[in-house]
């Protein structure tokens, strides 16, 4: 009896469609979110994440509808992030069928949001998404905003410590240095965060080859999130799991 390591495909959703692109530019339509969610479920994904990158209020309403259609058909946990600013935003998404919510910029602007959400719904629904990069701060890593373009002026490790105390149940650690490079997860950052963090860590950013995943687990990740390597079909969730299994990690297999 062992808790397995989770593989989490991430889908960028805008206006009710999955989009893909590089650094949020040159977006192309990649299909129906529900259909893709079903496909990933059947491929053995352990959870799914929708990142709402909608620009308009109308598109956000569409996201709620997408979440609800997905929850009706796909019986694995669904995390939704992007643009969540209030307890009411969280409530709407949970009622639509999301299981977990991830917050990022809004929590940086107003950290009390973390307390408010976890007091109402419990810390297990709340994932703190941290976009971090190397910088001249105490830990050597800082938090960024705007897709890694701007510094939030906060040390990554002290922000994570603060947020966990306030009440997040999980950390989604995105390496902005590694993101898009496909040269592997930022293992040094993972190790540092693992040392100070007593909630599960989802590693993200930089996955390029299959062995990158087991390296991240060795560095202390509990779960692994990836977008492009799965969407562009370079390898499948099953390929990654097979590699993890042969490396001796506990994984979930489908019958």
């Amino acid at each position: 009896m062992t808790l397995v390591k989770r593989i989490i495909p991430c889908l960028d959703v805008a206006g009710g469609r999955v989009v893909k692109g590089v650094n949020f530019t040159d977006l192309i339509d990649a299909g129906d979110p529900v259909e893709l969610a079903r496909k990933y479920d059947q491929a053995g994904a352990d959870e799914l994440t929708f990142l709402d990158i909608s620009a308009s209020v109308e598109d956000r309403a569409t996201t709620l509808e997408v979440v609800s259609r997905t929850a009706e058909e796909v019986f694995i946990p669904l995390t939704v992030g992007g643009g969540i600013r209030s307890v009411e935003d969280v409530n709407e998404l949970l009622r639509a069928g999301a299981d977990k919510i991830s917050v990022n910029t809004a929590a940086l602007i107003r950290p009390q949001l973390i307390n408010e959400i976890s007091e109402r719904f419990g810390n297990q629904v709340l994932v703190l998404s941290v976009d971090a990069r190397r910088a001249d701060t105490e830990s050597g890593f800082e938090v960024t905003t705007h897709g890694g373009r701007e510094s939030a002026g906060v040390d990554a490790l002290s922000w994570i410590t603060d947020a966990v105390t306030r009440g997040v149940g999980e950390i989604l650690l995105n390496s902005m240095d590694a993101d898009g490079t496909r040269s592997g997860f930022d293992l040094e950052m993972l190790r540092k965060v693992r040392e100070i963090c007593d909630v599960p860590i989802i590693a993200s950013g930089g996955a390029g080859k299959i062995s990158d995943f087991s390296d991240a687990l060795k560095a202390g990740a509990d779960a692994l999130l990836a977008a492009s390597v799965f969407h562009f079909g370079e390898f499948s969730v099953a390929d990654v799991k097979e590699d993890l299994r042969s490396a001796g990690f506990p994984i979930r297999t489908l019958n």
């Binding site: 009896m1 062992t2 808790l3 397995v4 149940g169 007593d198």
Partner: peptide, 13 residues
């Protein structure tokens, strides 16, 4: 356990 919540898939005997 050092890391909580217990979050994810676990085997049930």
């Amino acid at each position: 356990s050092q890391i909580l919540p217990h979050m994810g898939w676990n085997t049930v005997k």
